[in-house]
């Protein structure tokens, strides 16, 4: 296992004076090359803040951040755009619609990072944009559309296309499917898994939805009040949680009846079909 990303002792506070509160309070994270890591927690747990800090869109107060062995946490988020590692750490946002400039076509938006960070021009640029959109499974006739002309699922694919266009080595995804219907979500989950495998990208999934994290990730970190309370392989943590908070989180999930036996079966409802 090669370590790709490492953060130690991360802290981040919001507010002033007596309202000052640590959203992230001493967190260590290690992400291996090509790994799928889950960051689970409820609203206000600090998981989204960590996502933004990892993507270097938000400054942290304390702690160090290493990417590929290089310290990148000293450079402020304001100056991150000009750094050589910018192309290698990308992010996908929850609100895919809001993450696209309403004035630009989808392909222009996807072209922007390629133009700015890999300095592609002309045919090479067009080709790279179309390749990314194809990989994300967006139909060709949608490339020139404006964001408001796309459905939620199509926008999610476009957002992923933009993030992978630069072939980043680390992709942060903040609730990438929370706004989608399950019928669409399943397709996006498959897409993300394939992209991770094919492009050998490490992915960090930030989500409150344990069932989504379960199918997508191999390792999970559970957050509560700015702290990581439990960490381990997804299968083990979900099957036998050690921390009471994780136990509570799992217990609150709606139960799915097993296919054998019908626990709530009403008396006398044996199924006999009328053929009318």
């Amino acid at each position: 296992m090669t370590v790709l990303f490492q953060a130690r002792g991360l802290r981040k506070a919001f507010g002033n004076g007596e309202h000052r509160r640590y959203a992230v309070d001493g967190v260590d994270i290690t992400v291996a090359e090509g790994e799928a890591l889950a960051l689970a927690g409820e609203s206000g747990s600090g998981k989204s803040t960590i996502g933004l800090i990892m993507a270097r869109l938000l400054d942290h107060d304390e702690g160090e951040i290493l990417f590929d062995g290089q310290e990148i946490g000293k450079c402020s988020a304001r100056r991150a755009a000009q750094q050589p590692w910018r192309a290698q750490i990308q992010m996908v946002f929850q609100d895919a619609g809001g993450a696209f400039d309403p004035r630009l076509s989808i392909s222009d938006s996807v072209a922007l990072p390629l133009r700015r960070l890999s300095h592609s021009r002309g045919n090479a640029l067009t080709h790279a944009v179309e390749d990314a959109l194809d990989r994300a499974g967006l139909a060709g006739h949608l490339f020139r559309r404006k964001p408001h002309e796309l459905s939620g699922g199509q926008l999610a694919r476009a957002g992923i296309a933009r993030a992978i266009a630069l072939r980043p080595r680390l992709l942060i995804l903040d609730e990438p499917t929370a706004a989608l219907d399950v019928s669409v979500q399943a397709g996006i989950l498959h897409l993300l898994n394939e992209l991770r495998r094919d492009l050998n990208m490490a992915m960090v999934f930030v989500s409150h939805d344990l069932n989504v994290l379960r199918v997508l990730c191999s390792r999970v970190m559970v957050m509560e009040h700015g702290n990581i309370v439990e960490e381990g392989p997804v299968g083990r943590v979900f099957a036998s949680p050690a921390h009471p908070f994780t136990t509570r989180l799992l217990a609150a999930l709606p139960k799915w009846p097993r296919s054998e036996g019908l626990p709530h079966q009403l008396p006398g409802s044996a199924l006999i079909i009328h053929s009318q």
Partner: peptide, 13 residues
């Protein structure tokens, strides 16, 4: 997706 799901048996409509 539910407790018994794997990615392989999850399908979009």
């Amino acid at each position: 997706p539910h407790a018994g799901s794997t990615l392989a048996n999850l399908r979009a409509i």
